[in-house]
Design a protein around this nucleic acid. Structure first.
Lengths: 217, 217
DNA sequence: ATTATTTTTTAGACTAGCCTAAATTTAATA
DNA sequence: TATTAAATTTAGGCTAGTCTAAAAAATAAT
């Protein structure tokens, strides 16, 4: 059984390591957790004793198989709750993160099973992020940044990369949502910005920054 | 802002004081919280500084107006979540308490507002307990123990008093549920047990113990 | 009314999770 | 390669919430 804090550290390590692909440094983690490096070192030792991460002094941490499984279970809960909040309670997609951060720590396998059932076994959350299944398996969808699509091509918005509330609100305002149809009208070479047509109706100018955070397929 | 633990103490004090009607002793509280009296004394001081309870050494604690309001907000959340679990996720009524104990601590006024809306503003939880409204107001229903009804009278089950999982399971088994129609067929004087007819179909013999924990109107 | 018992409080100590300040190791640069 | 800078760890300390053991107050019983 993991504490609330341990769960949050593990989740951060999973995300920062890009699903276990690379090592995570102490400073990186301290930054993500809004704590001091010294505190991180303490927690790292705890999680290491529990075999959820592998720790090498002065090098960094890597997540273990068990750690990854635990992290994915938490992420599954987080994304199911986000889906619930949007689909059932009619939250906007920019309002759900903080609440889901709390809900993801509720301990009840039955609850998650029934919630999943209630939602109809969704495969992605309101931001288009894949929901790991009961066994931690992720159905990886082919997604590329909108900014890398060529002019005169069309695509469908399938996810947002980093979804800060303000970015999500901005997307809503210009008419971008998961499932939206987009046509790339023009790409400006020098700054990477793009002009797009959303659902064959709304035109919008999007910065490179934004275009790289919108994923399409 | 109250901590998880402070919220649980406050709720226990509210319940043990029967809604603020009487003082609560240190031992009583220690018992309810599964801690030692010394720990209770510590917490009592904290809540007292926050003006949520009034504390008199060696006497006990009474809940303040603010404390009562905070306790009722937590109870409201608990009961709304229980309702959600049963109504929407199809939990049995004996499975919801522990999960709701966790969910009641989620901090998000918007969530509760939307949950309440989603559930259609329920006035009672799956055990028949009144759900305080947004302002902490409780709609008190006239309820009396089944054991106090005379023979040859009928009534409708409106709540269960102390709902331990095993008691709730027992009630389900004999066919008693909130809203069930019961007719008192016979009362045994010497032990207080009663024979009832549920929904004009099922007969059951119920001990005095059980009959006092079933509330009807 | 005095002693015995129970209840409650105080004192001191423990763990989790955090901190600051100082020491150590690694990486970067002259 | 020697030195400086950055990253990391260690040492020691803090708070919340818990504990045990002992002291103090209230209650009960002789």
């Amino acid at each position: 059984m993991l504490s609330y804090t341990e769960e949050n550290y593990l989740k951060a390590i999973y995300h920062l390591s890009e699903g276990g692909e690379k090592a995570v440094s102490t400073n990186e983690l301290a930054d993500a957790m809004n704590t001091k490096p010294a505190s991180v070192t303490d927690m790292i030792k705890k999680l290491s004793v529990k075999k959820l991460i592998a720790y090498e002094k002065y090098y960094g941490v890597t997540i273990t198989k068990q750690g990854k499984a635990d992290a994915l279970a938490i992420i599954r809960k987080h994304r199911l709750w986000e889906t619930f909040l949007v689909e059932k309670l009619k939250f906007n997609w920019d309002q759900v993160h903080d609440v889901a951060e709390q809900l993801e720590h509720i301990q009840s396998p039955l609850l998650i099973e029934k919630l999943d059932e209630f939602l109809g076994h969704p495969v992605a959350d309101p931001h288009g992020h894949a929901i790991p299944d009961k066994n931690g398996k992720i159905h990886v969808a082919q997604q590329i940044p909108l900014g890398e699509i060529n002019a005169n091509k069309t695509a469908t918005v399938s996810a947002v990369k980093r979804g800060s509330p303000s970015f999500l609100q901005y997307l809503s305002k210009i008419g971008v949502y998961i499932g939206a149809h987009v046509a790339i009208l023009e790409k400006t070479e020098f700054d990477g910005s793009v002009e797009i047509l959303i659902d064959k109706k709304k035109k919008a100018f999007i910065s490179k920054e934004a275009a790289l955070n919108i994923l399409v397929s």
